[in-house]
């Protein structure tokens, strides 16, 4: 039995890796090309969304100029054309902020419950409930909100407007407190809880068990451990989860349309009846206002698209840079 054993000394001529050649079967090349093409198609799709909205919406800017962003109203027919998204943008931001103020604490508490507190057997059920909350159609949220939530909440709104009116945003000019930006934000806040909760839960669940046990072994209570270990670890993920929820809140349409009574008046009094959002503007005025009206709405859609895209991209950038985000996809 001849065994060739040859050891090569380190002093030999520098080794170089062999050149690389592709010998894939034709079938595999087609397969890879097809999959890659499909992947790239999503890039094209996103690009097309921006492009089409821009092309179709641009004529409205041509008419209104940059006053589109400083005008409130939707008058596109007749001699005096007066249309823009100022009040809508304002309302959109207010609704989103109220929604975040309401939704974030509940969502983070829910995520903490799911990762740190829930008994093993309850956990899958609760996770299913959170997922279900995300799947309930927004029109049903709207229906529920207008018949069940609003009648019970106007009491709080009224009380705040009477007793907290020294805080400017809680002041009201008219005593009517239903159909307000606040209540719309409340509903949207409930709707974004599942999104924020599921992303945050995912981040919290990646906390290294060693760090948690280290804190507990030092005698920390569970809440102290969460405050010192879980929350700092998940901070990046929480921030991006909140931004993701904000993106969702900015774009929410149907529930807002159902609750909010449209008014183009920009008012700091969020408890007061009336307001508008960009999504509401588009949904309500669609089909009105002739060709120019359509173009204006498409441009408003582009604005909404750009804002939410920017927020979502920022959210994914934050989460991928944070310590907890390494294994998380938003």
């Amino acid at each position: 039995m001849a065994i060739a054993t040859e050891t090569v000394g380190p002093g030999r001529a520098p080794l170089t890796p062999a050149t690389i050649r592709n010998d894939r079967r034709k079938g595999d090349r087609v397969f890879r090309g097809f999959a890659r093409g499909t992947g790239y198609a999503t890039l094209v799709l996103l690009f097309l969304i921006g492009l089409f909205l821009f092309i179709e919406g641009w004529p409205a800017i041509h008419v209104a100029g940059w006053h589109f962003f400083t005008t409130s109203g939707f008058q596109t027919i007749g001699k005096t054309k007066h249309f823009g998204v100022e009040a809508s943008l304002y309302g959109t931001v207010v609704v989103a902020l109220v929604a975040l103020a309401v939704g974030t604490p509940v969502a983070i508490a829910t995520a903490l419950f799911l990762t740190e507190y829930a008994p093993r057997r309850l956990r899958p059920f609760m996770i299913a409930v959170v997922d279900l909350a995300a799947a309930i159609p927004s029109v049903i949220y709207g229906l529920w909100a207008i018949y069940e939530l609003q009648p019970n909440v106007v009491g709080i709104s009224g009380w705040m407007s009477r007793h907290l009116s020294w805080i400017p945003i809680f002041k009201v000019a008219t005593p009517q407190v239903n159909a307000s930006l606040f209540i719309a934000g409340l509903v949207v806040g409930i709707m974004i809880v599942p999104i924020i909760a599921s992303v945050t839960r995912e981040v919290f669940s990646l906390t290294p068990p060693g760090e948690k046990e280290g804190a507990l072994a030092l005698g920390a209570t569970r809440s102290a451990m969460i405050r010192r270990v879980v929350l700092p670890f998940g901070r990046g993920g929480m921030i991006s989860a909140v931004m993701l929820g904000m993106g969702r809140a900015l774009g929410e349409t149907i529930a807002v349309v159902i609750i909010l009574s449209e008014s183009f008046f920009i008012s700091p009094h969020i408890l007061q009846s009336g307001g508008t959002t960009v999504a509401q503007l588009i949904a309500v005025h669609f089909g009105q206002g002739g060709r120019l009206g359509t173009q204006a709405l498409l441009f408003a859609g582009l604005v909404l698209f750009a804002v939410t895209l920017a927020i979502n991209l920022a959210a994914s950038a934050i989460v991928s840079r944070s310590r907890s985000g390494a294994g998380v996809d938003l």
């Binding site: 999503t42 996103l46 900015l250 774009g251 349409t253 939410t308 994914s316």
Partner: peptide, 10 residues
């Protein structure tokens, strides 16, 4: 990822 946050109205 960014598209998953696309508002449905858009």
């Amino acid at each position: 990822t960014a598209m998953s946050g696309l508002p449905s109205i858009v």
